[in-house]
Design a protein around this nucleic acid. Structure first.
Lengths: 128, 128, 128, 128
DNA sequence: GTGGTCTAGACCACC
DNA sequence: GTGGTCTAGACCACA
């Protein structure tokens, strides 16, 4: 996994989990990798993974069984979805509209671009 | 002018200028307020304004006449537009598509939302 | 390290790094001293060091790993060399030619002077 | 006359005078243009011209007859020459040697470049 | 008046 | 520990 420059790493890790839950890759009650394991895999400081897990736990997406590990919460998918939706409405969408307006971009172009985006992603999926 | 919590102030100041240039509020060769003046007006430290101006100068949006002040560069509008477009394509748009896809949002809804956004903005303009 | 009066300190710090890279003292991927550390060592304010580092980063000579520190960029030497060469051609050389011409200096003398300069520098190196 | 970005304007004005004296364009005891006249001609603030004249006077290159104007000092050429030589030795030359060494430039190339520089300048002179 | 540099010291997010 | 941002206040050169 590669990290983008701008966002903090622990946020990107948390998003990686959220996205996979939303995509249905992981199922409720699954055990998720331990902090140490994840840290090695991502080549990241364990503290950073810890922080990502703490964030997810705080939002009710995962929970902890002491001495055993972290698990996906029963409500995980619902939580993630509502969280993402809030984020989309309060942050992504306004910024998007603002830019479209400033740059006088045609909405139809964007629709076309989205179609291409979906195709490209479908291509990626097949690879796995 | 109010500042958002997350973005650094000097970035927001720079964006405030960029946006106004794009909106045609300011014209090429206009003198922009002095560092100190702007600092008083925005209730921030002069250093912070200085930093915003330095950023804008570096990007060719404003230029300096020594001992006199800062002025909008001839290429200001072109520079801002190309800069914003790059940002949109490399950052805003991918994030937007990603979210739309994850949340399985209908594109027609967004189009409708955009129409409302424009109306709301038009309302704001009239107030001034 | 001593600073000259005329040039700003942060520029001199940046040049100190550039020169050392060009001389091969530092190698690609080396970690460079932290901002605070450097500030103590040079007896300047951390902000001043920060400014120098920001300048070097902007020019692609160093890069940052968040929470860890600054490192020499893979392209550091190439960047520095092309930068210095540009500076030499656009600034140092024309000024030099202009002065030589005005003062009607013999080029052979300068060649001799350069030989002495190299010897003197070699002497300095041995001291270390 | 156009001014370079980096050097302060009043220094550039002073250098413009020095250079012309050294080139023999102006002769001892010539009256030089009044501050106001010069300011209009150069499209510059009179204060700036004043500062340049003050600098030249301080160095014994021009002198002032009250109510009449500024004149080239008898020793003007000698003064300028010694001043420039000092500047060359203490500033231009060391910087030049330093760069030549860092960039590992061949001295013969520079000699060739100087020949071209002289030819180009000769061309310019003829135009006048 | 203008910008530009620097210090001292604080606070924050991140790893 | 790391960088990054910001404030307050000072001083300087320049037009």
């Amino acid at each position: 996994m590669e990290f983008k420059e701008k966002k903090s790493i622990y946020i990107q890790i948390a998003e990686y989990f959220s996205d996979n839950i939303l995509k249905g890759v992981w199922q409720v009650e699954d055990k998720i990798p331990s902090v140490r394991e994840m840290a090695v895999q991502l080549e990241v400081n364990p503290n950073t993974v810890m922080r990502a897990y703490a964030l997810l736990q705080e939002r009710g997406i995962i929970y902890n069984k002491r001495g055993i590990g972290y698990f996906l919460a029963p409500e995980a998918e619902k939580e993630v979805k509502s969280m993402k939706k809030d984020e989309f409405i309060s942050s992504t969408l306004p910024e998007f509209y603002r830019m479209v307006r400033l740059l006088e971009i045609d909405f139809e172009e964007l629709k076309e671009g989205y179609r291409e985006f979906l195709e490209k992603e479908a291509g990626h999926e097949e690879k796995h």
